[in-house]
Amino acid sequence: MPPRLITTLAIPQSGLVTEEEIESVSKLVRIKVVDHREHVEKVRDMINFFEMLDSAGVEDDELVMDDVHVSQLREDVHEPFGGLSGYVRQYRDGYVRVPNMS
């Protein structure tokens, strides 16, 4: 049965998610985590909460996606947008200055 009472919600605590995994993902999405407790432990709690989906009984359901044929999409037309360089932060002499790409 799905949980009904928000006051008595049982949040799964499987402990399957490790802090190392979360730290690895944070590197993949390129976000520096400074406060370990503030982020990693809470993200682990959130993921444990998502494990409630395991009891939804949808494993065997087909996921039907809405296919849209390319002919139904609008034409891909380039529309010039003047003044875009004004919105680039580090723009100098016609070049965008970016960090080292190595």
Partner: peptide, 29 residues
Amino acid sequence: GYEFNSYVAEARGRFGPEVTRRMILGGYV
């Protein structure tokens, strides 16, 4: 002084706590 990925990570490290968590969460799930 920054390599590209570390520069982006440094900047994004200044997001607030909820946005930081949701980005990590989104990457994970």
